[in-house]
Amino acid sequence: MERTDAAGVRLGMWLFLYTEIMLFGGLFVLYSVYRHRYQAAFAAGGLELELPLGALNTCVLLASSFAVAAAVESVRRGLKKAALAFLGSAALLGAVFLLVKYGEWSRKFALGLYPGGARLSAEPGGFKAFFGLYYALTGLHALHVSIGCLALGVCWALVWKGAVHGGRLNVLENSGLYWHLVDIVWIFLFPLFYLVA
């Protein structure tokens, strides 16, 4: 028997999102403790990060969230070409995010600002903790962005094939929910790392 309880599927997806909130939440707890303990060192660490790149990435993800929401609306209205354009843009923006992140990490590595690196090893504990958290949190986040990009790519293919349409869009909606949550995590990571100083 074909069961299409959309509300149930949506509940399941939200339950999964709650686990993601708790997953990042553990790291947020760790961040909050160390920030409280090392206020000055965190400010110093924040100065090392490149605010324009962080702000750019923030805007990139916000725009991609808009694109995903617009894609869902397009599918609902049966506007296949618009949906494909929005989905493609969202995935592309996600890729841009990852490229910028890769660039940021590379520049930090080149400066010796990585665990075990020359510059970081010479800094005090709080500064090291800041960067440990930076890599842990942005790394975990980037992993999620990558998975999200893949999901959006799959959705693009399904829309293109006609497997996802106005009467059957669970996969797209749920991928969208995942993507928005990944955006929300970054909405918090941005001030926590780039606006400390």
Partner: peptide, 13 residues
Amino acid sequence: FGVGLFDPARGGD
């Protein structure tokens, strides 16, 4: 990777 978030020598607790 030696990140050090729980190592007191590297600021961890």
